[in-house]
Design a binder for these strands. Structure first.
Lengths: 231, 231
DNA sequence: GGATGTGAAGTAGTTCACAGCC
DNA sequence: GGCTGTGAACTACTTCACATCC
């Protein structure tokens, strides 16, 4: 058996969002020389229950050893496979302002499998300059048929840029502009919106869910020094 | 009746994340002079169903008019109330690299109610410089008892900075560093992680859920040009 | 003993369908 | 007519509890 090359049937959306966190935890563990980790340890560090961790990982095929936990290296590898890190992804970034520069220069943004292939902007002062090893191009240049486009433009430019992206036959967009995009059916858009994150925190501050309750457990979870529940 | 000052009992986590999107849509509507909007229109622009919009808004008290929709101004105001925008939030930002600068200079990050009160960094070249109207301070300076702390440091500095934040009696943290934080029970941490967003898109690219399926409908939803389902 | 993996139960969120009101 | 607001049905996710295997 041993789970064939078939990309594990279908993972739930929350699971997909947690896998990169588990992977990062495992990498930290590996760097410190630990070769085994169990679901309780992962759960504590990720801010979720051990059961959730086991269910998530069970979805990638059974590779844990009962009584011992998971082999850290295998864990990292399995998550990489599940997320598709074994393929190569060409990424273009449009809008090289502060945010765009922060992203392309960040050692954490482009993980294994992702490769930056082009940068675009409209600012004449930026065009021609080399950033992160690439020369910033004007938006009038043709956009290559990359895998993922990242939008870091101001909100009012985001839709125009999106139209260019769609015309370039790119079907996945990561949008940092605070602007809902209109795209043809078949193009995936994922939104990252800083102010929304701040507003969610603000809501919880007002309603005790956060500071007083102690168990926020958001999208990616909350870590606490008393990881073991009072039970 | 008319919903008293009581902060609407309790909103679900997904609802809270959608409200800012509705609000932004309403603001765009208002800027274009439209004073009425209905749940179907909001839903199309936000990438969710009209029913979901109505349920979300019903949680803020019944202020829609049957047959007509919602008054845009009232809608904006009600969401602001629900999210607690009528209070004042002091925000400190720690780590003024590219990302920190992008945030504090962004017109979208600090919404009504949020006020930037201090910036911190360790880089001697930055300390003393004025950014976004504030002088960057060294981390050795005392941190004021603000409402929210935003961490934009590299991953390896994040935990140290967190300890300073906790010592300063701040109970809400927005963390942009790719690092799970350990905080005392009672401190809310919300994570924003760019590489995770990219990885989620990559997963969907591999599994057809995104580009081929057409209906991603992520955390914040996907917009499509054919908003009406083929039904 | 100890930790995985998983049916079964529980909980949360979404969608349906329609009564109620404008 | 049209659109809101909501009980009821459904779907998705999490947690419990335990059989299973090292």
């Amino acid at each position: 058996m041993a789970t064939p090359r078939l990309r594990s049937k279908k993972l739930s959306e929350p699971t997909i969002a947690r896998l990169p966190v588990y992977q990062r935890i495992a990498e930290g563990w590996l760097n410190r020389g630990d070769l085994k980790i169990d679901s309780r340890q992962i759960g504590e560090l990720a801010g979720v229950t051990a059961t959730t961790v086991r269910r998530d990982l069970a979805g990638l095929g059974s590779f844990g050893t009962r009584g011992a936990g998971y082999d850290v290296k295998v864990l990292i590898e399995r998550i990489a496979e599940a997320l598709g890190h074994d393929r190569l992804y060409d990424v273009v970034v449009l809008g090289i302002g502060n945010l765009g520069r922060a992203l392309v220069n960040s050692s954490n943004f482009l993980i294994r499998g992702a490769r930056l292939v082009a940068l675009y902007d409209t600012d004449p002062n930026l065009i021609g300059h080399e950033i992160a090893g690439l020369v910033v191009q004007p938006l009038s240049d043709p956009i290559p048929a990359a895998t993922v486009a990242v939008i870091c433009t101001p909100a009012d430019a985001a839709q125009d840029v999106t139209d260019l992206i769609v015309a370039a036959d790119i079907h996945a967009i990561l949008n940092f502009a605070p602007q809902v995009l209109t795209v043809p059916l078949g193009t995936a858009v994922h939104y990252v919106d800083f102010s929304i994150e701040l507003q969610i925190l603000m809501y919880h501050l007002n309603n005790g869910t956060g500071p007083l309750g102690g168990g926020l457990l958001h999208s990616l979870g909350i870590a606490s020094t008393n990881p073991l529940r009072v039970s």
